[in-house]
Amino acid sequence: MIHYTATRLLSLTLSLVAASLVVFAVVEVIPGDPAAYMLGLNAAPEAVEALRDELGLTGSLAERYFSWAGGMLRGDFGTSFTYRVPVADLVAQRLWVSVPLAIFALVLSTLIALPVGMLAAARRGRATDYGIMGATQLGIAVPNFWFAMLLVVLLAITWPIFPAGGFPGWDAGFWPALKALTLPAVALALPQASILARVMRSALIETLGQDYIRTARAKGLTEGQAIRNHGMRNAMIPVLTIIGLQFSFLLAGAIIIEKVFFLPGLGLLIFQGITQRDLVVVESVVMLLVFAVILVTFLVDLAYAAVDPRLRHGR
């Protein structure tokens, strides 16, 4: 287990280093002179020079990378060129919207998908199964931001149960804030839940054909008992993979959904960064998103080991 965790940690670190190199190369090397790029074509040479100083663009590439990466490790993401405040502060505010939204959606999606998938597997080949499979087929095909727009029209405008957009902040109380995140989370979760339910179903059905299920039946377990006691845990392995992958889709999806609901999350920050050519902001937020994906991959790897003893024993 220790060996396994250590290997995964090493791989996490290496992935982070590699990802930061990629981001650094794309943002700071490909444009040539980031300062000139950020200020646009008509900038005065003195202004460009001043910005170069401010951004720390004077050293060699290696120096710049290490100072940037070192800063991030200390929580210093640099200063936003448009807002004139530390990016870390900007990001910290926005994280309080985006992270709860992504987690809310992931929890919602998992809570819906797993029972539905199990039900479909248990009733495979019957009407319930066909109904679920049809509904999930449709669910996968619906773009989440369009679904979000439908939800707004129905549940915020026609029947004003939820707010149509905006975010009161957690200071305004837990429930109002949660209420503001509910429609976005539902919009994000339903398409993902459709995928997850299908994976759950097919993973369970796959285990049903395995020899150990036959052994369990020969012991006297009913089909239902065999699925619960032996199928479920084995089916969790592919399901975990998809949950891990979904997190990155949810993060990306959250950025788009924030636009539908005018939520002040990382999405809005990054789009402002793009339009204002604020590379410092773009670079930091992208790095943060990538970090989140890599971290979730790591957590999923640990979860595998919890489910599967073959990994725990270092094979």
């Binding site: 395995q210 020899d211 150990y212 036959r214 052994t215 369990a216 020969a218 012991k219 006297g220 377990l221 032996h230 845990r233 084995n234 489910v307 599967d308 003893p309 073959r310």
Partner: peptide
């Protein structure tokens, strides 16, 4: 399992791996 027990050909896959 109680009155009749059974074992199969492929011991490598006959047991639940987890």
């Amino acid at each position: 399992g109680a009155d009749v027990g059974m074992i199969f050909q492929e011991p490598m896959t006959a047991l639940n791996p987890v």
